[in-house]
Simulated assay, not measured.
Amino acid sequence: MSVKSVLEGTEKAFLMLIAVCTVVAMGQEVMQLLALRRVELKDLLLMFIYAEVLGMLGAFYASHRIPITIPLFIAMTALARLIILQGKEADPSILLYESGAILLIAVACWVIGRIRPHE
């Protein structure tokens, strides 16, 4: 058994663990939404992040690589959720930094899309 095969097996095991934990977390979120009988934007964004993580894992298994735009979309969604969770009492300068980070990531996605349109 080569070192490469051990590393590949370990990688696949960890990716499967991530997939299982993501599905469990999504299930817990759905159960909480059903118990509260209320859905808010922050909940939808969290479920979208879970779906994107599963999509990223699926893309990896299909092509054995992760398109760089998927983690960037996840980061933008996470930052948007963070802004929503902070509410109105948040420091305006922090809001500018976070929204600036979203803009920067969006520009990076656009640049990557122009350079590598197949992703």
Rank of each mutant, 00 (worst) to 15 (best):
A25G: 02
M47G: 08
I84S: 13
F48Y: 08
V24D: 10
M31L: 08
L95K: 04
L103K: 11
Q28T: 07
E98S: 12
L72Q: 03
V39R: 03
G55S: 11
L46G: 00
A35M: 03
D43C: 03
E40Q: 06
I70T: 11
L96H: 11
A25W: 01
L72G: 01
I68H: 00
K88N: 15
E40Y: 04
M76H: 00
M47E: 07
V23Y: 00
A101M: 11
L82G: 03
K42W: 02
A51R: 01
F48A: 13
R37H: 07
L45I: 10
L44V: 12
A78W: 07
E89V: 15
S99E: 12
A78T: 13
Y50R: 00
L57H: 00
A108G: 06
L41I: 13
I74K: 04
R81F: 07
R81E: 10
A101Q: 04
I49E: 06
G55K: 07
T69Y: 05
A78S: 14
L85N: 15
Y97K: 15
A25M: 02
L96R: 15
I74L: 10
S63D: 05
F73S: 08
L57N: 00
I74A: 11
F60D: 04
D91C: 12
D91K: 13
I68V: 14
A35N: 05
L85V: 14
T77L: 10
L85Q: 15
L95D: 05
A78G: 15
T22H: 00
A35W: 03
E98Y: 11
T69Q: 07
F73H: 12
V107M: 13
I83M: 11
R38E: 12
M31G: 02
L44S: 11
M56E: 09
I94Y: 05
I66M: 07
L41H: 13
I83E: 08
S63Y: 06
L72S: 04
R65N: 08
L45T: 03
I74V: 15
V107Q: 10
L54R: 08
A101R: 01
L85M: 13
M56C: 12
Y61M: 09
V53H: 06
S99Y: 09
I83R: 09
G58I: 15
A106Q: 05
M47C: 07
L36A: 14
G58E: 11
M76C: 11
I66Y: 04
I102G: 03
I84D: 12
R65T: 12
V30N: 02
M76P: 02
F48L: 13
L44N: 15
L44D: 09
M56R: 01
E98A: 14
I84K: 13
T69S: 10
A25D: 06
A80C: 15
I68M: 05
L36V: 10
I84H: 11
K42P: 04
T22G: 01
E52M: 06
Y61A: 12
G58W: 14
I84Y: 13
L34C: 08
L103Y: 06
M26P: 01
I68W: 00
L96Y: 09
L103M: 12
S63L: 07
L36E: 15
F73N: 12
F48P: 05
L33Q: 08
G27W: 02
P92K: 10
D43L: 01
K42I: 08
G55I: 05
A62R: 11
L96A: 09
V24K: 04
A90M: 06
S93A: 09
F48D: 12
Q32V: 09
I102P: 04
L104Q: 06
V53Q: 04
S63I: 07
P92D: 08
K42M: 10
G27T: 07
I105M: 08
